[in-house]
Design a binder for these strands. Structure first.
Lengths: 118, 118
DNA sequence: CGGTATCCCCCAAGATACTG
DNA sequence: CAGTATCTTGGGGGATACCG
C-alpha cells in the first residue's frame, strides 16, 4: 500500500525518530497509555473514574501519563470548579480520535490472543 | 463490540499485566519492535538486511529485540551454515502474522500523521 | 556474518506520604 | 478530588570492543 519506512526520520515535539512507526510506539507505548486511550474512546472520564478502571496504576503514574498524552495532543483536560473538591475531565481530542482504528485493531488482537472475546 | 478490559488481568510468559492492551503494548512496544515486525511483514529478512533498513539501531539492540520477539513467538530464527560466514533468517510466525492488522493500522495512522502517505 | 561482553545513562514506573 | 513531592529500583537502549 505504501513504501517501507526506511530513511524517513521524523521529528515530533522535539524528539527524533527513525521512522513513523517508531514514533507512534513512543507516543502511545508504555504500560498505560494504550489503556487510558482505550477507556476514553467512547466517553470522557474523570481522574477518579480512570483510577477505578485501572486499579493497579498509582495516582502519580496516572497523572504523568495523562500529562504526556495531553502534551502530545491526544487528550484534553477540563477543570470544573476553582476550590476543592474540583472536577477534572479528560477526553479524546480530534487527533486522539484519529487513533481509534489502531486502538480497535490492538484491542481486537489482544483479546483474541487472550481468548477473552465475548 | 466487546466489554471494557478492567478486572481482566493477564499473565503471559511469566509477566503480569493489568489488561490485554497493556500486555500487547509491552510485547510490541519500545522503540524498535514495531519497526522490525513491519519490515518482516511481507518477506523474511537476514540480520544484516534488517540492520541496513534501520541504520540507527545498534547490532546489540537489534539482537536483543529479535531475541525477545522470538521468545514471545512473533518471529522464527533459522540458521544456514555451521561455519562463519553463516546466514540467519528471521520471519514472522503464524502468531506474528496475526498481528498484521495492528501493524497496518499503526502504519497507516503514523504515515497520515506525518503527512507522508504516497 | 551475526552476533556477545561490558559499561553506562536515562527514564518509566512503583511505594509512600503529603496538599490546594 | 485531583493531584505533588521524594525516593528507589529495573530495564531499555546506546557506545565500544571483541568473538566463533
Amino acid at each position: 500500500m505504501f513504501e517501507p519506512t526506511n530513511n524517513c526520520e521524523v521529528t515530533f515535539n522535539g524528539k527524533n525518530y527513525p521512522c513513523p512507526i517508531s514514533m507512534a510506539m513512543d507516543l502511545i507505548g508504555g504500560r498505560w497509555k494504550g489503556v487510558i486511550l482505550y477507556y476514553l474512546q467512547d466517553e470522557e472520564k474523570r481522574f477518579s473514574e480512570l483510577k477505578q478502571l485501572m486499579p493497579t496504576i498509582t495516582e502519580m503514574t496516572l497523572s504523568i501519563q495523562l500529562k504526556q498524552l495531553e502534551k502530545d495532543g491526544f487528550i484534553s483536560r477540563t477543570v470544573y470548579g476553582d476550590r476543592p473538591p474540583i472536577k477534572v475531565v479528560y477526553a479524546l481530542t480530534d487527533f486522539g480520535n484519529s487513533f481509534k482504528p489502531v486502538l480497535d485493531a490492538l484491542s481486537l488482537w489482544s483479546h483474541q490472543m487472550v481468548g477473552q472475546l465475548p
